[in-house]
């Protein structure tokens, strides 16, 4: 068991390191930040001065060495846009993202598991078809379009909820619902398929033959065994939400999280901030993955008994 945990932990560290190197290289390859930061008719002196003050006149490997030496101490330099430590800026935005993703994930799980389970009980039935349509809608409807539509309906037309921004619980509803739909759809499909696999197993037939109630067969026996697949897809979706889906939803609803920060960092060509944000997202996603990996041992005793 310990070996398993250490192995997963080391793997998470390698992923974060690789992400750091990749994001550093990409931000240095795609263009000259100095030209992007200065006005179009900036003088050559201004360009040179800014380039040297940012250390960009040094060879690439010297720049990387300096970056790496500081990065291991958690220092990613100052944000060019906000002129404050980049990691501080990124960390400030993380709680908002966690709040949004947490709420959306909760909605997705609460809807997806019952929907998937219900669909799996009678495959091919009307209920199954309705559930499949709902799940498919969730996967197919673009967040951007759905969000705008919900804003028009619930804010502009009905006046029930605010369009955007952060505040009380009512501000959380629209972005969380928008964000939850896609993971909900995919998770419901996965739950259905995992449950169908389990319900076709011999131990289920045995349980039924022994007279165990159908409710117990489904919820206790089959669902527990389907849990590994469900946890895997849930973890995967949680990672995707943190590292991608939030960008569009936060942008649309002006939710001041890390997804919006990434867009702003790109807009402002703020490469230290972009690096800090991407690395922070990388760390968060790796932690989610680690947690999912560790949770397998809870559902599957064979993993626990490895060593």
């Amino acid at each position: 068991m310990h070996r398993y945990i250490i192995g997963r932990l080391l793997f998470a560290i390698v992923v974060v390191l690789a992400a750091s190197v990749l994001v550093w290289l990409l931000t240095h390859w795609v263009g000259d930040p100095v030209k992007l930061l200065l006005p179009l008719d900036a003088s050559r002196d201004q360009v040179e001065q800014l380039r040297s003050s940012l250390g960009l006149d040094q060879p690439l490997w010297v720049q990387f060495k300096a970056f790496a030496a500081k990065a291991v101490r958690g220092d990613f330099g100052d944000s060019l846009w906000q002129r404050r430590p980049a990691m501080t800026v990124a960390m400030e935005r993380l709680p908002a993202t966690i709040k949004l993703v947490g709420a959306a994930f909760l909605v997705a799980v609460i809807l997806a598991i019952p929907l998937g389970v219900l669909a799996s009980i009678k495959p091919g039935s009307a209920l199954d078809r309705v559930t499949s349509i709902l799940a498919l809608q969730g996967v197919c409807i673009p967040d951007f379009w759905l969000g705008l539509l919900m804003m028009m309906l619930f804010s502009v037309k009905l006046g029930w909820l605010p369009t955007s921004g952060i505040g009380g619980f009512n501000y959380l509803i629209l972005p969380a619902l928008t964000l939850s739909l896609r993971p909900m759809g995919r998770m419901a499909q996965m739950v259905r398929s995992a449950m169908l696999d389990q319900l076709g197993e011999q131990y289920v037939t045995t349980a039924r033959a022994k007279g165990v109630s159908e409710l117990k067969v489904v919820l206790v026996h089959a669902l527990k065994n389907a849990a590994i697949s469900i946890v895997t897809i849930a973890g995967w979706e949680l990672g995707r939400m943190l590292a991608g889906y939030t960008v569009v939803v936060e942008w649309l609803f002006t939710w001041p999280g890390i997804g919006m920060l990434v867009i702003q960092a790109i807009d402002n060509w703020d490469f230290p901030l972009l690096q800090a944000s991407v690395i922070l997202i990388g760390v968060t996603v790796s932690m989610v993955n680690l947690f999912v990996d560790l949770s397998y041992s809870f559902f599957d005793p064979r993993i626990r008994g490895e060593d």
């Binding site: 705008l148 804003m151 804010s155 502009v156 369009t163 955007s164 002006t254």
Partner: peptide, 18 residues
Amino acid sequence: FKFQKEDATRLMALRNGE
């Protein structure tokens, strides 16, 4: 001063009186 990056969001907020 509220920051609303998306133009359509600003429009909706204006229509909603926010």
